[in-house]
Design a protein around this nucleic acid. Structure first.
Lengths: 222, 222
DNA sequence: TCCGTAGATTATTATTTGGTCATGTTTGCC
DNA sequence: GGCAAACATGACCAAATAATAATCTACGGA
């Protein structure tokens, strides 16, 4: 289970990281809002602990941005300010909880766990994420960097299959079997053709390409 | 919207009741844990604010009992003790949030509202709304942009089903099962035909179309 | 009984999809 | 460097799917 920590104060960060690691979590740490945002959008975290006062981009704006991009990772804010207004702002900007500094680590842990429990109850295993590409299986919608992409049924099925195999290479035969439900080689270039269209919609105009070809082997998304 | 307050201190109770009423909520008040438990089990509340130190039965045990009985009303604990251990106990015994006394009323309100937002996803509504389309399930009326729309029974049932699945795609098979209660494919295009009429009434003359077709998949409202 | 309405069915038309093919491009191997 | 295989790309088109209109049926009330 991976938790993202966005905190600029090194001592606080070290303290939290140590505690969370001991509790069995994998912790990734960002020291400023921009880095935190980038990480949160690329990776899938079970929860995020976000300081409000941060260099480059404050925590509130970071979470607002995340929510705009349909990243629903549960967030708990930390802040030295315990002023009521700040707490309220935190809850309103899309955070799920708020903890004023100084806090006891055990309370932070309890709150994180409560959040994750709650999120697990709601979170449909129905959304897939790879880097800044998100797929909502129920609404049948796909976003790249927060921007909605229109996909046809077959394209959707193909992308879903690739995303379910996030990082793994899938051969054309496997694609044919899963997406087309053929048990034979159709002797045509359906897959290539469909991959091409998918690329056009998913990767075009994006610096970072997600769909990769492995000659003679297959395709993978990453 | 009804909120349950379980608090033995009269002054605190009066203060909270007044504030919540001003915010437009109906508040019911119990002064001890047993009464609170009884109320929470009989009535349906949008949220509960529960003091931990209570006569007859303490707040923690009250909520544990509630949860055992599958009452999932969101609970926010209040307590004079701000000791970390107590907070953790609160979260672990099935509470959704914890607020130490003294607190600012506006923070309590924000937290209650955040909790209710989260819980709203599960709750059973009496009216459904999607964009500027509203359906009153009790009076069986539908409005688009404030303008009433006359629907036939089947059309109403169909629209209700779509709206209950707001944003989610429903296949024609699912529609047939829910709206017509057939467990087989009627081999006709009833659904398409009814959708067409529904569109005529709901989306005609409106810039923003709400009923969407997903070829080969189904329909959704959004 | 007759009419009106709700709702189902059928027929027709319109639209979209997704597979195929032809061609262009890249890659890796000898 | 030349070559063949693998892959990318774009245009095309037939089949699948859906929208719409028209027609039919069943039922309840005047």
């Amino acid at each position: 289970m991976k938790i993202l920590l966005v905190e600029d104060d090194e001592r606080t960060a070290a303290f939290i990281i140590k505690g969370l690691r001991q509790a069995g979590y994998i912790v990734e740490h960002a020291s400023d809002g921009e880095t935190g945002l980038a990480l949160a959008e690329c990776e899938q975290y079970a929860a995020a602990v976000v300081d409000i006062m941060l260099p480059r981009r404050d925590g509130l704006s970071m979470v607002e941005q995340l929510r705009r991009h349909k990243v629903l990772t549960p967030v708990i804010f930390l802040s030295a300010k315990s002023a009521v207004d700040d707490r309220i702002k935190g809850l309103q900007s899309g955070g799920d909880d708020y903890l004023p500094k100084p806090f006891a680590f055990s309370e932070l842990l309890a709150r994180i766990q409560a959040l994750m429990r709650r999120a697990a109850a709601i979170a449909e295993p129905t959304s897939l994420t790879v880097a800044d590409l998100t797929m909502d299986l129920i609404r049948r919608k796909v976003w790249r960097a927060g921007q909605e992409i229109e996909l046809q049924a077959k394209e959707f099925a193909l992308l879903e299959y690739l995303m379910r195999n996030n990082g793994r290479v899938v051969s054309k035969i496997m694609i044919i079997e899963h997406v087309w439900d053929y048990s034979f080689d159709p002797q045509t270039n359906i897959v290539e053709a469909r991959i091409c269209r998918l690329r056009d919609k998913v990767d075009r105009g994006s610096e970072r390409k997600l769909i990769h070809t492995l000659r003679g082997i297959g395709y993978k998304i990453e």
